[in-house]
Every structure is written in C-alpha cells, then in structure tokens.
Amino acid sequence: MNKLFEKGAILNMAEMIEYSTGGVISKQVLKNDAGNITLFSFDKGQGLSEHTAPFDAMVEILDGEAEISIDGKPLVLIAGQSVIMPAGIPHALYASKQFKMLLTMIKG
C-alpha cells in the first residue's frame, strides 16, 4: 500500500493528486477482492473514450468540472457532485476544464 494512502489517517483526496499538463494521472487508493478505489486527475481536453465496466462504479468530482456521458446522455458534474455509472452501460468522460475525481467500483 502506498504510504500516501495510509489507513487510519485523515486523507484529503483532492490534495493527494496533481494535474499533469496534457495528461491524465491515476493513483490506486485501495484494491481488494471486493473492488477498488482510484483517484484521477484530468487536464483540460483529456478524457476516457466510451467504454463499459462489468460492475457499477461511482464517480465523485473532487475539483473542477467533468462532462460524463452515460448511455449517450450528457451530464456535467462539478466538485461535490457524484454519479453512479451502471454496469454494462457505455460511458465516457471528458475534461472541458481540469478535474479530479474519485472512482469507486464495487464488484458484485
């Protein structure tokens, strides 16, 4: 386990990842048989193309603004907002502005 994400310590996720000019950064917070939690930062203009996941996944926006499409329906989320992306349904993410997010995927 990365000491950055020490268990039993207070964590400020938005401060635990930086932006990369022209890039996307991901840092795994936790991973086990039940699922995983991953921290991401997206620079303006970056994103993830449409794909599906085998399990429901929750995205929480920590900073900035994200454009998320779920089954072709566009959503704009800002810091403090979350959305659950259903398993097996196509979704995509795009950074019209920089944003940071926490992705939680629970298997089951």
Rank of each mutant, 00 (worst) to 15 (best):
S96I: 04
E65Y: 01
M16C: 02
K27A: 01
A79F: 10
A9F: 10
F40H: 05
L75R: 08
A14P: 12
G47H: 10
V29W: 04
T21K: 15
L11N: 11
E60G: 02
N12K: 14
V24R: 10
G108M: 06
A9H: 15
A53I: 04
L75H: 15
K7S: 14
T52P: 12
I37A: 13
K31M: 09
M85N: 09
Y19P: 09
M101D: 09
D63C: 01
L75Q: 11
F5L: 02
S41N: 07
Q46L: 02
I10R: 13
L103M: 15
T38C: 03
V29D: 02
M13Q: 05
A14G: 05
Q81I: 04
L75S: 11
Q98W: 00
K31D: 06
L48C: 06
N32V: 10
G80P: 14
E15A: 12
H51M: 11
Y19D: 02
I25P: 05
K44E: 14
S49L: 05
E15Y: 04
Y94T: 06
M58I: 09
M58Q: 14
N36D: 15
V59C: 09
T52N: 07
A14Q: 15
G22E: 10
E6R: 13
N12P: 05
G80C: 09
E67K: 12
G88I: 10
L77C: 07
K73T: 14
G72Y: 12
L77P: 12
V59W: 02
I37S: 14
K7T: 12
A57G: 14
V29K: 03
D33K: 14
L103V: 08
K3R: 11
V83G: 00
I17C: 05
D56T: 08
M1I: 03
I78V: 13
M1Q: 08
K3A: 13
I10D: 11
G108C: 05
I61C: 03
I78E: 14
N36R: 13
L11E: 10
H51K: 12
S20W: 07
E65I: 02
P90Y: 07
G64S: 07
I106M: 12
I89V: 15
I89Y: 10
L39M: 05
G22R: 09
M58F: 05
T38A: 00
L39I: 07
N2M: 06
A57C: 11
L93Y: 06
L93P: 03
F5R: 01
M85W: 07
G72M: 08
N12G: 01
Y94H: 14
I61E: 05
F55M: 01
F42I: 03
E18Y: 01
V76N: 02
I17N: 03
A92T: 06
L62E: 08
L4I: 14
S41P: 12
S41I: 11
P54A: 00
A9R: 15
L39P: 09
A79H: 10
L39F: 06
S41F: 06
D56R: 04
S96Q: 15
V29P: 10
G22Y: 07
K73L: 08
N32E: 13
L11K: 15
T38D: 03
A79D: 10
I70C: 05
N12L: 05
L103R: 09
V83F: 11
L77D: 09
P74D: 11
G8I: 03
F5S: 04
S41G: 06
H91M: 02
I84W: 01
